[in-house]
Design a protein around this nucleic acid. Sequence first.
DNA 1: CATGAATGAGCATTCATTCAT
DNA 2: GATGAATGAATGCTCATTCAT
Lengths: 232, 232, 232, 232
Amino acid sequence: MKSQRIPSATGIQETNQGAAARARLPRPVREQQMLEAASHLFGEQGYHAVSMDQIADVVGISKPMLYAYFDSKEGLCAACLKRAGADAINAISASYEPGSTPEQSLWSGFLAFFQFVKGAPSSWKLIRSQASYDVGIFQEMVSEIHDDLRSVVQEIEKVASRETAADPFADDELRVAASWALFGAAFAMADRWLENGCESPAEDYATELMNFFWIGIRSMADGETWKPLKEA
Amino acid sequence: MKSQRIPSATGIQETNQGAAARARLPRPVREQQMLEAASHLFGEQGYHAVSMDQIADVVGISKPMLYAYFDSKEGLCAACLKRAGADAINAISASYEPGSTPEQSLWSGFLAFFQFVKGAPSSWKLIRSQASYDVGIFQEMVSEIHDDLRSVVQEIEKVASRETAADPFADDELRVAASWALFGAAFAMADRWLENGCESPAEDYATELMNFFWIGIRSMADGETWKPLKEA
Amino acid sequence: MKSQRIPSATGIQETNQGAAARARLPRPVREQQMLEAASHLFGEQGYHAVSMDQIADVVGISKPMLYAYFDSKEGLCAACLKRAGADAINAISASYEPGSTPEQSLWSGFLAFFQFVKGAPSSWKLIRSQASYDVGIFQEMVSEIHDDLRSVVQEIEKVASRETAADPFADDELRVAASWALFGAAFAMADRWLENGCESPAEDYATELMNFFWIGIRSMADGETWKPLKEA
Amino acid sequence: MKSQRIPSATGIQETNQGAAARARLPRPVREQQMLEAASHLFGEQGYHAVSMDQIADVVGISKPMLYAYFDSKEGLCAACLKRAGADAINAISASYEPGSTPEQSLWSGFLAFFQFVKGAPSSWKLIRSQASYDVGIFQEMVSEIHDDLRSVVQEIEKVASRETAADPFADDELRVAASWALFGAAFAMADRWLENGCESPAEDYATELMNFFWIGIRSMADGETWKPLKEA
DNA sequence: CATGAATGAGCATTCATTCAT
DNA sequence: GATGAATGAATGCTCATTCAT
């Protein structure tokens, strides 16, 4: 329970199993091993529940190595977040096909997002656990990941805003907030989906999101706007 | 920064400032003081960044009192969450007027929510920091607050589902997920709003949400449904 | 689990069950209640595992009362020991019949001892747990109980030494040690007996002790003495 | 009284006094140092009166080392007990000469026992303080040490039972109890001896025990048995 | 007489981090 | 390059003990 070797997605451990196994690995390989293990642990157990000892143990190296590669626990976690964020962005970006319509883009983006969540749940959990409204010791990391997330935001925002001919968003703050709404909705649904074991098809969830947002967006694009009700 | 006396919402400290010092306060009063201080700290700095010493210090009492009232740090935080959750639910519930239309209800609910966030930011931060996808040591507390939140969900879900004559939600899991989408969107916007200091009017944010959701919901109520695009 | 009322051997709780139950009891009665509860707890769980809160809880009074009657936890425990020791001594002393032979006295003493152990197991455990070779914080109490025990020792020692016409005990230290041997043997057997639930009859154990000691003592009384073997 | 460096039985501190300071000792050496110090403290002051701080202080290391080697205070004390028990057993076992008579064996066993007590008084005190009728938090440890002691028991039991041609011991429970009687007697005498500073020769005490037991045993071996007196 | 309220002081335990080899 | 050995600094929690009422 304390020293579970993870299956090593890199497949490197298997190649040099002979003598002196797991020694003198080239830097980038080691780094990936560490990130892999740390991401998994951080994602599944949360930052505070994971100790550097544990991570070193799982990677199969000594603690000072972790400090040699990343400067601190915080640094290591930040690197994990960065990687996870990049993975998420890549997964979603890759789904956009050059000439496709915004509707198609939004749909494929949602789909790619849900598939990413299902495919790399601990990465997603890691992102969620830190990127949410977290305060204190993490503010730097949060802002960092927010930067990452913001680029995801912009990806979709581009799609979304392209359609809003009659722009109901008064200013930039609100426009950004709007894309966060989209994200918040998608994230919250993904959280529930994960909680339920990702058994329902990703398509169902993505479809539901489209039902909420695309229909709304299209109507807005048609010039429809909701105005506050007057108090009776 | 380490020993800031909180302003004492009870107003009692002010009355017996003469005698003062080791005041012998009745149980419920002390309890509120503790919850007040702890909620604030937990909300602003996060569970792990706050120590029991710190909390006791802020309340102006000794640590053992905290343990006498709440059994553990976890217990104290759970109580804070419970209170914050109840406050949020009350704030929103209170906004619903008996005979009003769903549209009015949704609007006033959103408005009440944003006002609550602005009025009790640290309570909201507390809820967010724990009720988000948090893993490990907090799962019990999270489920507790989720129960509270779920009643908020249902409030709106009732509104939402009442309108969806042609129900696009395949099953219950999706229906629940749908309400989480609503929540996720609202929460994410609230987070951004807070980050920006809550300077824009709450109405703007609520309006934006209505633009997204109500228009979509109304269209759905009109029988419109989005169907997955066929792959070319 | 935290607040088990003990059955109150005194039967006093039952008498004033009406209003203001358990208040204004005469001092000696309260004292007995406290000793009863504390002895039980100390005996079953050990000094350090029992807290003053627990004791007060079981007695059904507030902690300051305990301090009013006994000055400290140590004082309370010392009083418990004293009482338990006195009980043991009384039980054994009462078994001696005036004109009986030493053999009869020894036999009835052993028997009475085992019966006491079975009848008041937690008293016995209390005595044992503190009167053994305990160090540190307890030295004063230990010496106190040793004084009590010593009088038990002397009771039997009188019997034992009366018979040893040809005295094999060089000096007083050894003579005292001899009686401790007798005690140690009886105590150790009692411990095992208790561990086994006191199911075998007390007579069997007492008989066994007589087999060991009385036969030896009688032989010694007949002048037989064991002398160290010469090294080959 | 709080930070007395122990004399270092390993003799290592003396050799590298130059380099000294934060010495980087190999694991087994440190382990022995820790056991040495802890045994001493636990033995002299009792488990509860000793803090991990104190132990670390005496060893001259930091607390976390204690936890790195032994998992907890309980673990450390258990290890001390184990060692002390093994020492005692070894000391006694070593005294038995292969072809010797039971009488010689018993005698040399007693002698070895008393010498062990005198030679390693704190080890003995440690054993006594925990292996006696101790309740509560220690039950596991006690049973562990009892296992160790039981092998000592069996050593002597063999001697004892070998001689009892006409077996006065009804069943196994009583036979085991008999050996505990022997132990109890020896232990009690050792306790008194220690209390008096171990000034009298060990031979005197061992002789006294032989006087009690061997004469009794031999008589029993001759078929003599004590039977309960009939009540007049 | 009796107690609820309150605390000072200590203790086991953990963990990120760093030398010396 | 890699590590075993080591630690400073907290942190959650408990408990005997005492006021003020």
